[in-house]
Deep mutational scan, measured.
Amino acid sequence: MGFKLLSKLLVYLTASIMAIASPLAFSVDSSGEYPTVSEIPVGEVRLYQIADGVWSHIATQSFDGAVYPSNGLIVRDGDELLLIDTAWGAKNTAALLAEIEKQIGLPVTRAVSTHFHDDRVGGVDVLRAAGVATYASPSTRRLAEVEGNEIPTHSLEGLSSSGDAVRFGPVELFYPGAAHSTDNLIVYVPSASVLYGGCAIYELSRTSAGNVADADLAEWPTSIERIQQHYPEAQFVIPGHGLPGGLDLLKHTTNVVKAHTNRSVVE
């Protein structure tokens, strides 16, 4: 069995187990497998329904001669939608809004960016022009300005110390501490036991640490421990890039980060 097929099978099995364990909360999309990078042309966006009122959005972007996937989250909030992270750029984010209108038909009224990198804030200006209120932590807003990236308009308070959590509509926002970046936030959907790890969490097929220019490698494993301790009931975990899975993604990420750190020390 090929690795790609095995990865998709694991996603399907995880979703099936969740649907059985929580039949009222989960209505997993039966329309197909989780979209992969090879299936999404740059400039297009796919939506994948995880649970009743919960979707991931998947886009792709060219970077350094390669094409990478990027995940975000959409959560229903009454007759409105909360968006977590842009679709990595203005063109993708405009396509995301169009796809949401086509498939869901509810307005996106608020959006949260989970850290300051372009795959999370690139497209904020498109959201703002569409009347979406954009939010991020003060740290993310400051770092985005320093980096020359787009800056969300509103500040999220109460997320300055490791372990801080605040309720934001249908989700809980959690600051686990520094990891992929010093400002990275985690998003949890309690009604569906869905954990969105953003770039602080890796997919299972990833074996290298990737972009760690703004990471705190020493603190990252401790931050992941905080996530595990705060959300032990999480059933569906979405990484910032690639295929979702279960809580095993947290341990896998820790292993990859520690291996990278150990290699760096040896070198």
Rank of each mutant, 00 (worst) to 15 (best):
G123H: 01
G210A: 07
K91N: 14
G197K: 00
G105D: 07
S137Q: 07
D164R: 07
I74G: 04
L204G: 05
A213E: 10
G32I: 15
R120N: 14
Y12R: 13
P35K: 07
L247A: 09
F116Q: 03
H115N: 00
T261Q: 03
V187F: 00
G198M: 00
H241T: 00
I100L: 04
Y48Q: 06
F174A: 04
S38D: 04
N262R: 08
L217W: 13
D85K: 01
A259T: 11
V112H: 01
T254Y: 06
A218F: 12
G198S: 04
V166I: 11
Y202L: 09
A234K: 14
R128W: 07
S208P: 10
V266D: 03
A234Q: 05
V75C: 12
V266Y: 15
L217T: 03
V112D: 01
D77E: 04
S62T: 04
S264C: 11
R110G: 09
N211M: 12
P35H: 14
A87H: 01
T222H: 08
G163A: 05
Y68F: 14
D214C: 12
D79E: 12
V194Q: 01
N184C: 00
S208N: 14
T222M: 04
Y34P: 12
H57A: 14
N149E: 07
S162G: 07
V54P: 01
S31T: 15
V28G: 09
A111G: 15
G246R: 04
F236E: 12
H252C: 07
N92F: 13
I74V: 07
S223F: 05
C199T: 01
A95Q: 11
A179L: 03
E147K: 12
T86H: 02
D216V: 10
K251S: 03
I104P: 06
N149H: 04
G158R: 07
R142F: 14
S205I: 10
A19G: 11
G105L: 14
T86I: 05
V166A: 07
A192F: 09
N92G: 11
T36W: 05
D214Q: 15
P244I: 06
W220M: 10
I186S: 05
I58K: 04
F3P: 07
A19N: 12
E233G: 09
L156V: 07
T14S: 12
G122A: 06
S208A: 08
R226P: 14
R76S: 03
V212A: 10
A234P: 15
H260G: 07
Y202E: 08
S162K: 06
V124A: 08
N71F: 00
V121M: 04
R226C: 11
I40C: 10
D119W: 00
A213C: 10
G72E: 00
S137K: 13
Y12V: 07
T207V: 04
I151D: 02
I224A: 11
S181V: 08
F116C: 05
D64I: 07
T261G: 08
Y68D: 08
D214M: 04
S208L: 10
S70T: 14
S161M: 06
D125W: 05
D77A: 09
T134A: 06
Q228C: 02
A209P: 03
L247W: 06
G131E: 08
Y135M: 03
P232V: 09
D29E: 11
H117V: 00
G177E: 00
L106M: 07
S208D: 12
L83M: 13
K4Y: 02
P232K: 15
V112M: 08
R206W: 05
S208G: 09
V37G: 05
E44G: 10
S161N: 03
Y202A: 09
V45K: 12
T261F: 02
R110P: 02
I227T: 11
T14Q: 05
Y135G: 01
L243C: 03
A144G: 09
S31M: 07
Q228T: 15
G2P: 08
D77F: 13
E99C: 02
G78S: 09
R206G: 06
S193P: 10
E147A: 13
Y48C: 08
S193W: 12
E33T: 10
A165H: 04
A21T: 08
Y196V: 04
L96G: 11
T134Q: 03
N211F: 13
T14V: 13
L106Q: 03
R120I: 02
S70C: 15
L159A: 05
G163W: 07
S38C: 14
T114E: 00
A19C: 08
G78K: 14
P176W: 00
P244E: 13
I186R: 00
R141G: 10
D85S: 02
E33A: 09
S30R: 09
D79A: 08
W88A: 12
D77C: 11
E172Q: 09
A234L: 13
N211S: 07
A133F: 13
G240S: 11
G163C: 05
E44A: 13
E219M: 14
H230I: 15
G158F: 15
E150K: 15
T14E: 14
W88I: 03
L106K: 08
A213T: 14
E80P: 02
E150F: 05
L5S: 14
V166H: 02
L249E: 03
V67W: 10
V194Y: 02
Y231S: 04
H115L: 00
I201W: 00
S113R: 01
T60A: 08
L82D: 13
L249P: 00
T222K: 11
G78C: 08
P239D: 01
A234E: 11
G158Q: 08
N71T: 13
Y202F: 04
Q49N: 02
T253V: 05
V28M: 13
S191T: 11
N211L: 07
A111D: 03
E147Y: 10
L81N: 13
A178H: 03
E80L: 14
W55K: 02
L247V: 07
F116N: 13
A209I: 08
I50D: 04
H57F: 03
S113C: 04
G158P: 04
W55I: 07
E101F: 12
R263V: 07
E145S: 07
E99N: 03
S264I: 13
G246H: 05
R46S: 13
G65H: 03
V189K: 02
A259Y: 04
H117Y: 00
Q228A: 13
S27P: 05
G123P: 01
R167C: 04
L143F: 12
Y34N: 05
T86S: 12
T14N: 06
S30A: 10
I227G: 08
D52K: 05
L243V: 07
M18R: 04
S30D: 02
S155G: 11
R167N: 05
S56R: 10
E219D: 14
D29Q: 10
A90N: 12
V112C: 13
T114Q: 00
L24Q: 08
S16C: 05
S7H: 05
E267D: 09
A59V: 09
V266E: 13
S137E: 04
Q103T: 12
E267F: 15
M1Q: 07
S7P: 06
E157Y: 03
G169Q: 07
S56V: 11
R142K: 14
A136R: 01
K258Y: 10
L195A: 08
N211T: 07
N211P: 06
P35N: 14
L156I: 03
